[in-house]
Every structure is written in structure tokens, then in C-alpha cells.
Design a protein around this nucleic acid. Structure first.
Lengths: 108, 108
DNA sequence: TTATTATATGAACACTTATTCATATAAGTC
DNA sequence: GACTTATATGAATAAGTGTTCATATAATAA
């Protein structure tokens, strides 16, 4: 655990290119309503592709494409169970960002 | 100030359309490297358009367009001083999201 | 093996978006 | 007034994105 004081040695100069890329990629991932809905559902519980499809009224293809997107960014993980594949969140930092944003949007 | 306990009555069911729109708009705003750089600079200190242009090596037009975008979402505010217009952040929630994301990107 | 079920994938398309260029507006100076 | 400086804006363009359709893959059951 870090100490409580803000880190005064850390300045706010220009961000390096890699950080900029990671941060923008992360926010882009959260910048689409479909992906938000999927992540919000997965936050509740692990789901198979078909469950996501059904619950959110999205085509199987759309869900699969978006899950690939989220998987590439390591925002979700998956496990196989027979012919089904169950997805769940895999980045607690990003999920925390999402929940904060949702909370603010609901209460402001 | 709210109490410390997580709100157990709040469930994670489907988000309403308005919340979904606000959240996705917010994250879209943070999903572009140029806007991230601008907000990160403004976090340090209030800047005129030309200062942003110079510091970030962006055209005046690009900066102006992006500031309009951020202004429309009420993420920045501005004040006039002669012919210059000084911009600064206007949404501490969103700035907090940005700082968190940057922090995570730098340290993971 | 064949058939079925669940998921993934590639191509096409419509739509969105970030930047540039040219120009407009607005305040200050002479 | 004319001129300069700072910023805003509209149109055009190139690049990116989300969905759909058709099809492929993979596991299972018969």
C-alpha cells in the first residue's frame, strides 16, 4: 500500500507515446455502448456468448466481434465448457473506471 | 458524504439508455490521444489555445476543434482575456478517470 | 461418420471521426 | 476607419469503427 500523501515528485509533463496509446485504447474500449453493456453484464456474472446475445438482444456475431476486441485488450478472459465459452472481466482497473463512470452518470 | 458500506440494494441490471449514452460519450472523449494530451496539459495549468498549440505541436485548428468537442461535453470551461481564450478542466470526475487510467498505464 | 450446437471470422457496408485548408469572427492597436 | 492577433468554424477528405451476412471452426451427440 502506498502512503497517503500525493506524490509531489511526479510532474504532469507530456505523456510518452506508449502511455498515450494504452490510455486511449482503454478509453476507446469503453467508448462504445455495446461494449459497455457487455462489460456491465459480465461484471454481474460470467456469461456464455449466447447468454450475452440473448440478454442484450444482440446478434451472436456482434457479441463475438466485440468479445474479440475486449479479449485483445485483455479486458476479458474466457474458459471453455463443452461447446460453450464463458467470458468474464479480466482487468479490475478498467472495470473500476467503468463503474465510477456509471455511478457518476447516474447521480449527476 | 455517503456512508462507507457498498450499496447492496443497487443491482447491476441493464443500464438505461441515457446513462449508456452519457457514459459512452464520456469515454469517447477520453479515447483520443490528442484530447488526452490537451486535458493532461490543462490539468497542470490553464492555457490559451495558442499555448496548447505550441506546447503540443498541434495546429491551431485542430486544437480549436477538439476544445469545442470538450466544451460541448462540459469537460472544459474557458474565460476570455483580451484576444486570448484560456481553457481549463471543468469536470473533476472525468479528470479523475483520466488520471487513474494514466497512473495504471504507467505502472502496470 | 454425420448432424447439431456454439462460437469465431472475413468481407462488405454505412457511419463516424480527426485533421487540414480556407475563411470567418472578434478583440485590440494604430 | 484599417490592421494585427487570437480563435472559431465549415467543407472536404482520409482513416477508423460497428454491424450484418455468409461461412468456417470446434466440440458434442447420435
Amino acid at each position: 500500500m502506498d502512503n497517503e500523501r500525493p506524490n509531489l515528485t511526479e510532474d504532469d509533463t507530456e505523456l510518452d507515446e506508449e502511455t498515450l496509446f494504452i490510455v486511449s485504447q482503454t478509453f476507446k474500449a469503453l467508448g462504445d455502448p455495446t461494449r459497455i453493456r457487455i462489460l456491465n453484464l459480465l461484471a454481474e456474472r460470467e456469461c456464455a456468448v449466447s447468454e450475452i446475445s440473448d440478454k442484450l438482444h444482440l446478434s451472436q456475431s456482434t457479441v463475438s466481434h466485440q468479445l474479440r476486441f475486449l479479449k485483445n485488450l485483455r479486458l476479458v478472459k474466457f474458459r471453455r465448457a463443452g461447446t460453450s465459452i464463458y467470458y468474464s472481466p479480466d482487468d479490475q482497473h478498467v472495470m473500476a473506471l467503468l463503474h465510477q463512470a456509471i455511478h457518476h452518470a447516474c447521480h449527476d
